[in-house]
């Protein structure tokens, strides 16, 4: 093959690639259905953020006054400060987890306490919030790749995750047992009453650790507790009303929301008792999650502490009925759930 001929071939090849790319580009005239922006009109100039909009009964729409704090803005890494926006990742696709992150009562807008808090933090830092909804997996890949600046998505601080991410804590869990209204079982903190029950729990969560500890203790006493896992809240809920499981052990806010929503259906549920997310050994903390070494964890923690000190934090929690999950202060990389069970 002569040189001239080979270069012609290469040109033809690259032209072919271009044609293929353009064809695909023409085909894609649809638009993104989700990853919508903030739940309400935010205007940095007005110095207010609306939270708990379109909450579908899970919260009370509230205006919270907040404005940029120059000293906190100054802490931001240069690249973020220059871009002027904070890309907030939420992993609520396809099914959300109300009231933390979900599609609101207009049936199209992403709302929830988590993206709301992200927007409060962005306002303090003087950045324009851009909320991105994706799958749980893509939330983390997005943080890894730099597509997303920070995840506000009910992410628990664990030692495993600390290998790749920095954390700024802002909330703690309270847990509850959800049962059908026809069930007579109640939980008053005594784990021995769980003997013989089948309970669903989210995999990899703080509450799972607690439940598994109880399971081990019951086993030692010769009794059985069956633990079941489901891919998402919808599947768990179906299993509960279908009688496949006796109870669901999960975050109290989510369970409170489900019970309120279920009340008018043929299969109502109720709360069988709550339990502190502190568990037996360690308090699990929910934390804003950034890429390790990005330099964002510190300014975000300081912004959260500013919100705590100036009362916006309490208003935000109150708007979403989450006041019992307040933390006194935000910490950078607090001790997380340990790597192993033992």
């Amino acid at each position: 093959m002569t040189h001239a001929r080979s270069s012609r071939l290469l040109r033809a090849l690259s032209a072919g690639t271009a044609a293929a790319t353009l064809t695909v580009g023409l085909a894609a005239c649809g638009s993104a259905a989700s990853s919508s922006d903030a739940a309400s009109v935010d205007n940095a100039a007005t110095g207010a953020v609306t939270v708990a909009a379109l909450a579908n009964g899970a919260g009370t729409r509230t205006y919270i006054k907040v404005s940029e704090v120059a000293s906190l803005h100054a802490e931001l890494p240069a690249s973020v400060a220059k871009g002027g926006q904070l890309v907030i990742g939420v992993g609520a696709l396809p099914a959300g987890f109300p009231p933390l992150a979900f599609v609101g009562s207009d049936q199209q807008t992403l709302t929830g306490s988590e993206p709301d808090f992200g927007r409060l933090v962005a306002a303090v830092l003087g950045l324009k919030p851009v909320v991105q909804n994706s799958t749980w997996e893509n939330l983390f890949v997005g943080i890894d790749s730099g597509r997303t600046d920070v995840g506000f998505s009910n992410i628990t601080d664990t030692e495993e995750r600390k290998k790749k991410y920095d954390f700024a804590s802002y909330r703690e869990d309270n847990l509850a047992f959800e049962v059908t209204r026809t069930s007579t079982w109640n939980f008053n903190g005594d784990w021995t009453t769980l003997a013989g029950k089948t309970v669903a729990v989210g995999a990899g969560t703080n509450q799972e650790k607690i439940l598994l500890e109880w399971q081990a203790k019951l086993k030692a006493a010769g009794k059985q507790l069956t633990v079941k896992y489901f891919p998402d809240n919808n599947a768990t809920h179906l299993a509960l009303v279908g009688g496949k499981i006796d109870a669901y052990f999960g975050p109290n806010p989510g369970i409170a929301y489900q019970i309120a929503q279920d009340a008018r259906t043929p299969n109502p549920t109720r709360n069988a008792g709550t339990y502190s997310g502190a568990g037996a050994s360690l308090q699990g903390l929910i934390a804003a999650t950034v890429k390790k070494g990005s330099g964002l964890a510190r300014p975000i923690a300081d912004a959260i502490n500013y919100l705590i000190k100036n009362g916006q934090y309490a208003k935000w929690l109150a708007a979403w009925n989450l006041s019992n999950e307040a933390v006194p202060t935000s910490l950078v990389n607090p001790p997380g759930l340990p790597l192993t069970d033992s």
Binding site: S34, N56, A92, L93, P94, A95, G96, F97, P98, F102, V103, G104, S105, Q107, D232, N233, N234, H237, Y257, Q258, Q261, D262, A263, R264, T265, N267
Partner: peptide, 9 residues
């Protein structure tokens, strides 16, 4: 699925 999580009933 998304609506199912907002309206679990």
């Amino acid at each position: 699925q998304s609506m199912g999580s907002t309206y679990p009933g």
